[in-house]
Computed example of a mutant assay.
Amino acid sequence: MNPYLITGPALISFSGGRTSAFMLHEILKAYDGKLPDDVVVVFANTGKEREETLRFVHECGSRWNVKIHWLEYTADGYDEVGFNSAARLGEPFKALIDKKGYLPNAVTRFCTSELKVRVMKQFCLNLGWTHWTNVIGLRYDEGHRVLKQLAANDARKERWTTSMPMAKAHHTKRGHVLPFWLGENADPINLTHDLPQGFDLGIRDYEGNCDLCMLKSRGALKRLIRDNPGISDWWQEREASITMRSAKATEAGRRFTTEYSYADLEREVAAQPFMPGLLDDENYEFDVECGLHCAPESEAA
């Protein structure tokens, strides 16, 4: 049976990256271009997604004629927005931090669990669903994450059962996702050939959907800060605001990363010349799919 034939009720979690977009394309193809009424597509915007990500999500919906529900966290639940009205200044993320009184970090990733997982859960509950399939783009080459999610399914602690059709189809990043989007192009920025689909996300892996996600390597963060002046301002402001006003925050809760602050990174970039090896990090491939690899490992929704 085609693993991309999803039985509803089901929510397709679209992170805004190439992998989950490939998955959505294959699901649509399995249904001859039209999803069943009880299979919905959701993109949860944190307000810190790159503009390229927002354009990519919008273009996938427009080109493929599929309704994508754009959701954003609010203190009372969520709002449904669209490409033009989507937050671009970190408003949902800031609202969550203000409510919590401390910052997420690599261990306590409440940014994913609250801004994405819980928002999607509430959306499904508002549809009247009591149990559903949660479809995520974990690939065959992400075996340890797939196994963790299968274990979560066995535990049956949630209202949903997670489906990973890309893993079942043995679809991988190098063998399927990148050729689908980039074809013969080695670099998504400096194109040398036509794009197979006529469009693409247009960012490199280390850049990621979330502009300065704390899970990126230190080298990747410094490269992004160097290449995008002002990009760390929002992150520095959040760390400074927590340090000044919150008695609830422990030392760990006052920084996104315990080893350094974003102000430290800014100072390092200003003081150091560019070093070619800054991006050497085994995890950089996963940065682009924010929400896919974090969610199974974050706090339960």
Rank of each mutant, 00 (worst) to 15 (best):
M1F: 00
P3C: 05
Y4S: 08
G8T: 05
A10T: 07
A10E: 04
I12M: 09
I12G: 12
S15E: 04
A21F: 01
F22N: 15
H25T: 12
K34P: 12
D37P: 01
V39M: 07
V41E: 11
V42H: 10
N45D: 13
T46Q: 05
K48Y: 06
W70A: 00
Y73T: 06
D76I: 03
V81I: 07
K94D: 11
K94R: 12
A95D: 14
I97E: 12
I97C: 14
Y102N: 14
A106L: 14
V107T: 11
S113Q: 08
S113K: 08
K116S: 02
M120E: 14
Q122E: 14
Q122R: 09
L127I: 02
T133L: 00
G137F: 04
G137L: 02
L150D: 09
A152I: 02
H170G: 04
H171L: 08
R174C: 07
F180L: 14
L182G: 13
A186C: 09
L195F: 01
F199G: 15
G202Q: 08
G208W: 00
C210F: 03
K216R: 11
I231Y: 00
T243G: 11
M244W: 00
S246Y: 00
R255F: 05
S261L: 01
D264W: 01
Q272T: 10
V288W: 00
E289A: 07
E297F: 04
E297H: 09
E299G: 07
A300L: 11
